[in-house]
């Protein structure tokens, strides 16, 4: 039996319309022939050409990607190590440590960003690439720890010991026995860090300097003046990439549930 739910579908449809209308308009006007943001005067790809000529946008995109890649890798290493340490702690210390580590995840981003900025100013470290990287690693570490920790708790210590008994060095046993069990958590922590880092504005805004703007920092400063439609073009490209990736990741797969 097939029931129709006109109200339900209408409600969900309208909510989706609300969420997508601004993005759709943004994308449509990226193809506009002149700089007008309300009247579509004709189809053109000139804003896409302008985008690739715009050093500010491309350079900040590259900056964002560099920080996202580096910070997610460093955060994954620190976070995996942290999860291994925390997983072996006694419950009392473990909860206390987790609570402290979780602070940047729960705290308001503006407070986290400012607190780091004050630390850097106090230590007279000039704001730029280094401080931005530290800030991103700092807010990514808790996410990695929290996604690896459940895997650490599931670890079976006797397989590691068996490997040692069979003559494996601790490093070899770790790589061949422990790490594979942690991998799903490590990968999801890495992906999560990467996207969190790429998406961040507020913390970056307070912890980077004029010499190393990220994409969101650059776009934010562009919105103070008349925004070139090449921003729309870049947003459209990014949206399409994410859309395709997510669609591919979510469409077929039957039976198997998400695993990071």
């Amino acid at each position: 039996m097939k029931k129709h739910h006109p109200f339900r579908n209408l409600y969900l449809g309208l909510t989706l319309l609300f969420l997508y209308a601004p993005i759709a308009v943004l994308i449509v006007f990226s193809f506009n022939a002149d700089a007008n943001r309300s009247v579509f005067t004709g189809f053109s790809l000139k804003w896409y050409e302008k985008l690739f000529e715009s050093d500010a946008l491309i350079q900040s995109l590259v900056n964002s990607l560099i920080v996202a890649v580096l910070s997610s890798i460093i955060a994954t290493i620190i976070g995996t190590y942290g999860a291994l340490i925390i997983g072996k702690m006694r419950a009392k210390y473990r909860n206390m440590t987790i609570n402290i580590i979780n602070i940047p995840m729960i705290n308001a981003e503006i407070v986290t960003g400012l607190s780091l900025m004050m630390l850097f100013v106090f230590l007279s470290i000039p704001l730029g690439f280094g401080t931005l990287l530290i800030a991103h690693v700092m807010f990514n570490v808790p996410y990695v720890i929290m996604s690896v920790l459940p895997k650490v708790k599931q670890l079976n210590n006797s397989t590691y010991e068996a490997a040692l008994d069979l003559g494996a060095t601790p490093g070899y046993a770790f790589r061949k026995v422990v790490l594979p069990d942690l991998m799903p958590g490590v990968i999801s922590g890495l992906l999560m860090s990467f996207t969190m880092s790429l998406d961040d504005f507020i913390i970056s805004y307070f912890t980077t300097g004029p010499g190393f703007p990220t994409l969101s920092v650059t776009i934010n400063s562009m919105t103070k003046k008349k925004v070139p439609l090449s921003v729309n073009a870049l947003s459209a490209l990014m949206f399409v990439i994410v859309f395709v990736v997510l669609l591919i990741a979510n469409l077929p797969k039957k039976g198997e549930k998400k695993n990071g």
Binding site: L19, Y20, A21, P22, I23, V25, L26, F29, R37, T195, L198, D199, F201, L215, S216, I219, N220, T223, V227, V231, S235, M238, F239, V242, F243, L246
Partner: peptide
């Protein structure tokens, strides 16, 4: 999906609208 758009871009999109 819209959450994957950068926060700044989303707000800018809303402003353009």
């Amino acid at each position: 999906l819209p959450m994957w758009m950068n926060f700044i871009i989303r707000t800018y999109a809303m402003r353009s609208l």
